[in-house]
Write a protein that binds this DNA or RNA. Structure first.
Lengths: 344, 344
DNA sequence: TTGTAGGCGTTATCAT
DNA sequence: ATGATAACGCCTACAA
């Protein structure tokens, strides 16, 4: 017995077949009129489009993708959805993809590689055309699944030593290095460094590495008391600056590898009456709008968040639509910029 | 001639058929072993799972959804992806959905109903099981398409007069009313109001209405000079407070219907040496973390952003999985809270 | 330019 | 408990 009784009328009705009947043509003609208008005569196109309108036909992407073995979805996995630093990237990514007819499926891994693997599996099950992963640390099983699926991938959070496929990012190590050098050149001699926990977070690890490398270059000692790993939030930033100043009174600068931390630290200085940069200079990571509007305005790194999303999308699209296999393994190391402001 | 040559081995290989062959069973048994384990014998289940592992089989959701006429995706449309006030909602929405095996497709309408309609069409084409719309203003065509598709919808940005289907939100009008009344009760007599442009933004309109209603209740005159519509951003907030104070020197409070505006205004006061709340009190909308950490801390409205996402997801899931038709048209009016702080 | 036939990978339905 | 068969709605391949 057929799966579906017979006549249709209810919601979600019209199929391509209905349109074809109405227009008195075959479904292939409908399909062509819709997807390759150049391949049908103008009159025919008109006739089909009218039938489409009259029937309220809505193409079924599921069926289309299954049949053509090409989907129009891209999967994005970010560590945390409610982190402002990702939203710019997500926005531009989504815009460019939408423009090419792709839809974004988004999910959050919570900085957990196991969760990431789980999500990758789900996305591959949905037959996404491509994946965008912010993290650059993946479980071997995840890597294998991706390889096996043959899906193009872009990593966007860092420049990994051994990329999965394509990479569009700035170098966290280089950025932290640049800012630390900047502080050194400004004359600061005891530069503290605060970052987020680096467990399963190679971005944090690399930033610390950049800091350490710069200190060496500057001829300054690496003092473990000046390095703090902490959680997120304004309160954490406040606590860090208070603690550091107490532990190492000679400290004259604090480089926070996270915008929220830096602002938290700045506010704390304000409350304690410590001049910034007189008593202690403060530098941040990521040029969120807020940093320009606080007083004193905060020196920071302008990162190419927008470009990352845009270029990641473009690479994926080239691979998927144009089959640009020569792009496989592309590494786009985008530039960042040190923005000198009042706080240093 | 067959679409696909014959043997397979390349990427994305294993189909359910391969698993079935390997396990020496039919595809139906594989399907059951995977989706309704209770319906197959334990030994069989084990045999199938082993074959799944050995073949690296990844179920094809496209085919599954097409065949079963049930998808596991939900579409979300927000006005702007990079607006911090949505991220909390997106996060909780995504979490709850993921937990029930649903995936989130997200897109941005840019406060444009035409764009929204376009996205709705695309999502319906992907046969999403449900839609979450932040906006509550829709084109008639969009409404018709949704009706025709028979897909459950949740609106989350406001409590509309005539809901599309389900609603999970707080009332923007009531919230603005509550804050204005709060300011009035604190003794402020010349309360200014700043909001974002209200074109295609019923949230803004309703907030203004709440402000106006409260003024009347307080027996205060509605003075157009005290009402400003502006763009987003810290700079806009700064400009607003400067302008208002100049135009109406008697102003003693400014209610900003937007967190960024309020902070911008606060910073401007700081720069000009105006005491807050001595010279002018400042109140905000939406309890973002920042407001608690600036100095003075800012009085604001705590909105149920997290709950909204969670409950919206739950409603959709009930409708889709349990077929809970009695939930159709549910309106969940969530509570908000006035948080009194130093700035008023 | 248009149509015919068959398959994409899964699940609903009925039969055993 | 398991299997055979026919859809799901569209598109590839080929033919006319």
């Amino acid at each position: 017995m057929p799966k579906r009784s017979a006549a249709r009328s209810g919601p979600g009705s019209a199929r391509m077949r209905d349109v074809a009947l109405r227009a008195g043509v075959s479904t292939m003609t409908v399909s062509r009129a819709l997807k390759e208008p150049g391949k049908v005569s103008p009159e025919m196109r008109e006739r089909v489009l009218r039938a489409v309108r009259e029937t309220g036909y809505l193409p079924n992407h599921l069926a289309g993708s299954l049949s053509s073995n090409r989907s129009t979805t891209v999967g994005l996995i970010v560590p945390s959805i409610d982190n402002s630093i990702y939203t710019q990237t997500v926005k531009s990514l989504s815009e460019v993809l939408k423009h090419s007819g792709f839809q974004l499926m988004i999910a959050e891994s919570g900085y957990d590689p196991n969760e990431e693997e789980e999500l990758i599996t789900v996305f591959l099950g949905h037959r996404v055309s491509g994946l965008v992963l912010h993290s650059t640390e993946h479980r071997p099983e995840a890597v294998e699944k991706i390889r096996n699926a043959g899906v193009p991938v872009v990593e966007t959070g860092n420049i990994p030593d051994r990329p999965l496929d394509m990479v569009v990012s700035y170098s966290n190590r280089d950025a932290a290095y640049a800012m630390t050098m900047h502080l050194g050149r400004l004359g600061y001699r005891r530069i503290a460094f605060a970052s987020l926990y680096s467990v399963h977070n190679d971005r944090s690890k690399d930033r610390l590495q950049g800091y350490a490398d710069a200190l060496k270059e500057l001829g300054q000692d690496y003092d473990p008391r000046l390095v703090v790993e902490t959680e997120r939030g304004y309160a954490a930033g406040a606590e860090v600056v208070a603690r550091i100043v107490q532990t190492v009174p000679e400290v004259d600068a604090l480089f926070c590898a996270g915008d929220v931390l830096a602002v938290g630290a700045l506010f704390e200085c304000g409350k304690r009456g410590w001049a910034v940069p007189g008593r202690i200079a403060i530098a941040s990571f990521d040029d969120v709008d807020l940093l320009r509007h606080v007083s004193p305005s905060v020196t920071t790194l302008r990162l190419p968040r927008h470009d990352i999303g845009q270029r990641a999308a473009r690479l994926l699209i080239s691979r998927v639509i144009d089959g640009a296999e020569h792009l496989r393994g592309s590494v786009v190391d985008l530039k960042f910029e040190v923005i000198q402001r009042e706080s240093t």
